[in-house]
Design a protein around this nucleic acid. Structure first.
Lengths: 184, 184
DNA sequence: GGGTGCATGTAATGGGTTACATGATTCT
DNA sequence: AGAATCATGTAACCCATTACATGCACCC
């Protein structure tokens, strides 16, 4: 969490910034942000000043302390620990024989739409990043994360195409079996 | 959960079966399995008989009821609801400027190793499935899920290659900057 | 006056993991 | 005797989301 304190900001701002930057691979809710900010302040990882700008509601602007930056660096050095995957689509596909193929096709198609949207979105943000932060030293890092999404969404989109084709195959075969039975 | 009751089995068996079939995209712990089995039994979705085979510990074998199968079908019909992504690797990459490039390279490299292992594993299981369940009517569905992993791991592996190349690029550039400074 | 955006927070709830506790049997 | 495998279960805990509660300011 503390990592968002690369520039000083309020909890509310953090949430917004998350949505428009790392939102594609990370989310946090207010119910998470505010309590942890409080905790981090108690631990001395962050400090805050209560700001009262005119024409604006009162707000607390948090900033990282030296200790906080140290903690953050430690965390960045730690190996990434993969979290257990949970893929509902694949689970439904795995037990697909219990329902009609049309249901599965619907699921895959809507998943396909999501991937297509992601592809478009990522290309757009990559362009926008290049355009608006062309000189920012962190730009290469940001682009790497966008590129990740691009590769992933692309591959999954291809998988959807293949899977949908296979579904059509299966449907045809099932049709034949029904015909066979009727002929007996 | 109830979906694992496609054949009657005990909680312990479920866990094992998960590991060797859908383990790549779904996991459940005992602390999850046993309580939900109890709950499902109370709801009338499953029944169980206490079995005492000789030379084996006592166990409860669960089986789906008609109502349970109905419930499962309902669930399969429900649209897949995507869960919020949480990608620690990308998060660390995003804030990569705070640590040395070597750290990031290490992270990406170990991630790359994971993807390579996945690729190999999926090819192996696909072959094994074809070999051992060549005639099973559900085989196509199982292969779809394996194929998903194949596409994903392949794409992420490629992304790793690109990203590592970019890291080398960045390192070279940083080297040049240092030289420039030294020359001033 | 009412909607919208800025702003902070808490409480309830849910979902899940880990660790613990127990006990039988089989293999070495 | 001790380790491994089979087997069931509970309690503590953690992480996170949702819903709720509040309030100011600005614009229509």
């Amino acid at each position: 969490m503390g990592l968002l304190s690369l520039g000083p900001m309020s909890g509310y701002q953090m949430r917004q910034l998350i949505d428009e930057s790392i939102g594609n691979f990370w989310t946090e809710s207010y119910g998470q942000i505010y309590p942890t900010l409080k905790r981090l302040a108690a631990e001395g990882m962050v400090t805050f000043i209560t700001e009262q700008a005119e024409g604006r509601a009162e707000r607390k602007v948090y900033a990282l302390t030296a200790a906080g930056r140290e903690r953050l660096r430690d965390w960045l050095n730690l190996p990434v620990h993969e979290r257990v995957p949970r893929n509902e689509l694949l689970l439904k596909l795995f037990f697909g024989s219990l329902v009609s193929l049309d249901v599965l096709v619907r699921h895959v198609e809507s998943f396909h739409a999501v991937q297509q949207a992601r592809l478009q979105q990522y290309t757009a943000t990559a362009e926008e990043l290049n355009h608006r932060h062309g000189k920012h030293p962190d730009l290469p890092y940001w682009l790497m994360t966008v590129n990740y999404g691009l590769h992933e969404a692309g591959a999954l989109s291809v998988w959807c195409d293949e899977t949908l084709a296979q579904c059509r195959e299966l449907k045809k075969r099932k049709g034949l079996q029904v015909v066979k039975k009727a002929n007996k």
